[in-house]
Design a protein around this nucleic acid. Structure first.
Length: 244
DNA sequence: CGATTTTGACCTGCGC
DNA sequence: GCGCAGGTCAAAATCG
């Protein structure tokens, strides 16, 4: 059975006083047919230390789209979960976002998932695909801090074998920077969601060890639906609508 | 002509 | 404090 690991650079912590609280957060994501996930694979790219990645084994656009959708969904679910947490613990307006922070001093949450064979319970036949597999994502561990609380926007990264750098995930992005990173031949590109008031960012780069692999990192959560649904291909549309 | 990309400057954190 | 590395800004260039 395949397993995959999505990495969730989740909300944080508190440097001084934090205690770890095991949390449960589960959700299932329809799994496209003809696509399998390879064994858990850790990403050792230096700039992504401590981050695991999901690695679709297929090179198909469907797989790439799925990967993006999966991650986006994970981000959303995680955020919802976090929001719930926040209100539950009476955080009030104590949350703030940090654009810059020392990555290493943060405690990353983790979301792990496993493939579970499961037949889609009929009914939903608007999809010509029959999602007979689902990716179950559950068991999140995170650290909660007491007192002043800082929360970093949820971040996810994954790598995909793809010829195109920017995978179409249904959202519109505007490039705002490009940087050559040390020890790599391929530059890293920075994108921001074009939607007003949406601060979601996305980083795309190629893995130095294997240029065929594209590493996509999302940061933040969209507070809106994909804006270009009308232009999406049918497959994407179906996938997207299913998720959102 | 508005939207997006390009690209060097600028900013900030971190290690020495 | 200094310099490096990564992230962002923004003016100019380019695109559609």
């Amino acid at each position: 059975m395949s397993t995959t690991n999505i990495v969730n650079h989740h909300s944080l912590f508190d440097q001084e006083q934090d205690h770890e609280i095991p949390m449960q957060m589960g959700f299932n994501i329809p799994f496209p047919p003809n696509m399998t996930l390879p064994p858990l694979d850790n990403c050792h790219h230096q700039s992504l230390k401590g981050i695991s990645a999901i690695t679709p084994s297929s090179l198909s656009p469907e797989a790439a789209n799925f990967a993006e959708t999966l991650l986006a969904t994970a981000v959303q679910k995680t955020r919802e979960f976090d929001d719930h947490l926040t209100s539950s613990f009476g955080g009030g307006g104590q949350l703030l976002s940090l654009n810059r922070s020392k990555v290493n001093s943060w405690a990353w949450g983790e979301v792990t998932g496993s493939l579970i064979g499961k037949r889609s319970s009929g009914g939903d036949d608007q999809h010509h695909h029959h999602h007979n597999q689902q990716l179950g994502v559950s068991a999140i561990k995170m650290k909660k801090m007491k007192g002043r609380r800082k929360v970093r926007e949820p971040r996810f990264c994954f790598k995909t074998m793809s010829d195109v750098d920017v995978l179409d995930d249904g959202y519109k992005w505007r490039k705002y920077g490009q940087k050559v990173v040390k020890n790599t031949q391929h530059p890293r590109s920075y994108y921001r969601c074009t939607q007003d008031n949406c601060r979601v960012k996305k980083r795309v780069e190629r893995l130095a060890e294997d240029p065929r692999m594209v590493i996509t990192t999302y940061e933040g959560r969209h507070a809106h639906s994909p804006s270009n649904e009308l232009e999406e291909s049918q497959t994407q549309s179906e996938l997207t609508n299913f998720f959102w």
